[in-house]
Design a binder for these strands. Structure first.
Lengths: 400, 400
DNA sequence: TCGCGCACTGAATCTTACT
DNA sequence: TAGTAAGATTCAGTGCGCG
């Protein structure tokens, strides 16, 4: 396994070095620097522009430690989507995300996965991210190609786009699959202790909470438009690299896009190889990466898990058995009473709504915090429903 | 759609009724009660013992509203799992969870999904739960069979089994796929408003947090051993039924196991059909369900949704004397004004059209909800015309 | 400098009833 | 059944301008 630490490009340099790659289909956008302890043909910390399968086939076999892949999701939008305020959603409608059929998508998927397999070291692992549109195809292909799934990881988005038509649950997560090259490859890298320490000394779970990539981090062009429609947050890549790679490792990304993998690799003292079809993305990524200042090697430690006070649905109070459907809630002075329904809405004089809405309605106020307004009788005493929320939060705290 | 409410078995009765089913392979463990307004061959609130595909094929086509399926996971533990203290983990190693290959599992999956499809009503939906061992196979099969995925839902476990070897992330979730019968079936049941009210008046997301089924809820046999290795929590099924079904609906579960689907269906005033291969599970489930006390019907009905309210023509507002022909409507900020004509159309700069059309035109947008856009002046304050619609609807309700 | 209000945005398979 | 009109529908932010 490579232990290189100096191959990462100097952060102060800005010059672009475009060179002829090993095949005509894969010109390199890279730095002239080349570490001496890796095969000459391994284009470390470079971006190969061209078809990812041709580029993969140009690389030496068993040469990379980790692959992170963010392939096209094969979204199938039927019509334009407008928000309630009638503005148009800037959806992904790029050519690279269009496939004629599931069969074609499967063929494409199996091809790039097969090519990835060849360049993976024996104990290398592979990450693929996707949504329900494509992730089941990817998972099936992985299993058919004899990859061995280690985990599926859920990226829970703290700020997902809402469902504007109210016809589904908010699509608030994406799924990543983490797999080794084969069931026999047992000696893959996994920093269990670091992950546990990062998670308040509890094992790191398979559900991770991160915000979308927005604000400063989001790459914009000269017109202020986003450079890439699906730029991933650096925190996501950082947790992957910290848990599953070592400084000096080679991280390959066959769908490099805006170069998040490269930026995080450089920051964390890893080497990257980026494959990207679109010249415009590759160029933006190169510039982005050249601006990254690597962390001090000592500082390259696991990022702590994010912890905030979570929202508890009132439904959880019923689901947790604290209050039963059909019970009656009253306010402090027992002037108002409402019946709890199975779906956790309250019913008062035939009107149905949330604990907050009905609390407001009872008092004739524009708003009301139902948690502090409503009580339930226990042993002939009033107990605030907020007590149950606190209890649920205490139990959840370990699982954040 | 069935509206049966009385077919749910009497909670005080305890007797088992085993009968000969429609095929030799599907003897019924059911109640003698049979609602009169459903086809004679629909075995409501019964458990059919036998091969699930044979049982499915014995049911009439297009007869169920929701299917919840918890198929075998095809777990692939190579060796016995031992805890750090050397105790043996009681993992799933039952015969019904063994498949020789992915191909065999796929064949099985496609077969039962195809049989499910036939018994689904046009706007029925299907839920399948699984883990990374099988869910990718299931999702691929669903898409190949032309089901239309609406969401993938993550069940986050608040108390998952830890990873004992420290070689992976804690497997802390399972995945559910929610799908309609085809892309064209748009009128599936989804109680958006109820879910939103249940979740602090914010849209219900695709990640749900529940504890595992433990304690009192977990079914035990006479020796104190768990009856079924993968009993699902009732809260999970309750959220599914509350969001995606109505009282009286028929919920089918082709892998009934310990009968959680039946228990929750009865509690929430839904009908169930359970299919189960193992006599011992069916018997335990029957007993469990007979002990369930249904909730009061008031507590389980769907909260009223705006989109199900009757349409009120704007003309009714004029006819009701709320607004007089010739009056002027304005928007929130009084940037636009339009005159009400006697036939309830608006006139703005010589153009005449509905409240919606003129609202859209004024803003230069493709569409507009005139009810929320326009206001009228009363006592020098703006009053939304939607207030008048609400009033008309309230009066209509009283006279029903 | 701070707070407030408003505009804008993010991998999205996003309506329904009537003629 | 296809076309048209009614009308229902958003959360957690970031960033900017104004007072």
């Amino acid at each position: 396994m490579g232990t290189l630490r100096t191959g990462v490009a100097d952060a102060t340099a800005r010059s672009f070095v475009s060179r002829t790659g090993p095949t005509a289909s894969a010109p390199r956008i890279g730095r002239a620097l080349r570490p001496v302890n890796e095969p000459a043909s391994l284009p470390l910390n470079e971006i190969l522009v061209g078809d990812c399968i041709a580029s993969l086939n140009s690389l030496p076999a068993e040469s990379v430690d980790v692959i992170f892949a963010d392939p096209p999701y094969n979204l199938q939008l039927e019509n334009a989507l407008v928000r309630p305020d009638n503005s148009l959603v800037d959806a992904v409608d790029d050519d690279w995300d269009k496939f004629a059929s599931f069969a074609e998508y499967d063929r494409f998927t199996r091809e790039w996965l097969h090519a990835c397999r060849r360049v993976m070291k024996k104990n290398a692992t592979l990450w693929v991210i996707g949504s329900y549109h494509n992730i089941f195809r990817v998972g099936t292909a992985l299993q058919d190609l004899d990859f061995w799934i280690l985990n599926d990881i859920v990226w829970r988005k703290s700020n997902p786009m809402p469902n504007f038509r109210g016809r589904r649950f908010t699509n608030a997560h994406e799924t990543m699959i983490w797999a080794s090259k084969s069931p026999e490859a047992k000696n893959y890298t996994f920093h269990y202790e670091a992950m546990k320490a990062a998670n308040e000394d509890a094992q790191m779970r398979s559900d991770w909470l991160f915000p979308l990539c927005t604000g400063e981090e989001r790459l914009k062009d000269d017109n202020g438009q986003k450079v890439h429609p699906t730029q991933k947050p650096e925190a996501l890549l950082a947790r992957i690299m910290l848990s599953c790679s070592n400084p000096g490792d080679v991280i390959l990304d066959p769908f490099f896009g805006s170069g998040t993998t490269g930026a995080v690799a450089k920051k964390l003292g890893r080497n990257f190889i980026g494959l990207e079809r679109e010249q415009v993305y590759a160029k933006a990524a190169r510039q982005r990466i050249d601006n990254v200042v690597p962390l001090d090697p000592e500082a390259v430690s696991a990022a702590p898990a994010k912890r905030t006070e979570v929202r508890v649905p009132f439904l959880s109070v019923i689901e947790g058995g604290y209050i039963k459907a059909g019970e009656v809630l009253v306010d402090d002075k027992e002037r108002f009473s409402a019946t709890v329904r199975a779906d956790s809405t309250l019913s008062l004089s035939g009107i149905v709504g949330s604990i907050h809405k009905i609390g407001a309605l009872a008092q004739g106020l524009p708003s009301c915090n139902g948690w502090s307004f409503w009580n339930v009788k226990r042993d002939n005493k009033l107990v605030s429903i907020d007590v149950f929320r606190s209890d649920i939060r205490a139990k959840m705290r370990d699982t954040q």
